[in-house]
């Protein structure tokens, strides 16, 4: 076994793997939150709001009058210093939660965010338990080798060796 493989199989390897995964999640979640212009913020919010008079189009994509009104309102509120979440909350208060293309982060809609995480954690825990059980089983199997087994293997090898 090479040194690299030995390192990766050691507890340090698992710690390194966990750190890389955690780092990737943090970068993915927060990496694109640098300073943005007001126009970029208006577009970003408009992409998360459904056009109320269209099918399968966001306010950002639609050219309808209702979508134009909503884009105007988003721009007004962004200019007035409201956060993206405050603008979305205002729209949901007027038109209903159904107009938001991303589920809310509180109440029942928050389950959409929470459930996949719960599923991943449960699956990871299940895998860890399964791996541990298999390893324990292998160790138990190794311990279960009797002198008779060894004698049987030795005899088989001798028999193989004696063949012409």
């Amino acid at each position: 076994m090479s040194k690299v493989t030995a390192f990766l199989r050691s507890p340090f390897g698992w710690v390194l793997l966990a750190a890389v995964v955690a780092g990737a999640l943090v970068v993915g979640a927060l990496g694109d939150r640098g300073p943005r212009t007001q126009g970029e913020r208006v577009d970003a919010v408009a992409k998360t709001v459904k056009c109320p008079t269209c099918r399968s189009e966001s306010v950002y994509e639609s050219r309808s009058a209702a979508a134009q009104n909503l884009r105007n309102e988003i721009a007004r509120q962004v200019s007035a210093g409201r956060t993206d979440d405050e603008v979305r909350a205002y729209i949901a208060e007027r038109f209903g939660e159904g107009l938001l293309l991303t589920p809310g982060t509180s109440g029942v809609p928050a389950l959409v965010w929470v459930l996949p995480v719960v599923a991943v954690v449960l699956a990871g825990g299940g895998l860890a338990l399964a791996f541990r059980r298999w390893r324990d089983q292998d160790a138990a199997d190794a311990r279960a080798v009797t002198d008779d087994d060894r004698a049987l293997v030795a005899a088989a090898l001798a028999d193989e060796h004696d063949r012409p």
Binding site: P52, F95, G96, G98, L99, P103, L111, V112, L115, A119
Partner: peptide, 28 residues
């Protein structure tokens, strides 16, 4: 566990709005 997750997802789908704003109800 799998059943509980499925039930939770069904609750989310059943309680979420369809997005059609054609009701005379209003939060206002």
């Amino acid at each position: 566990g799998v059943g509980a997750l499925l039930v939770a997802l069904l609750v989310v789908l059943a309680t979420s709005s369809g997005g059609e704003a054609d009701s005379a109800r209003t939060p206002l």
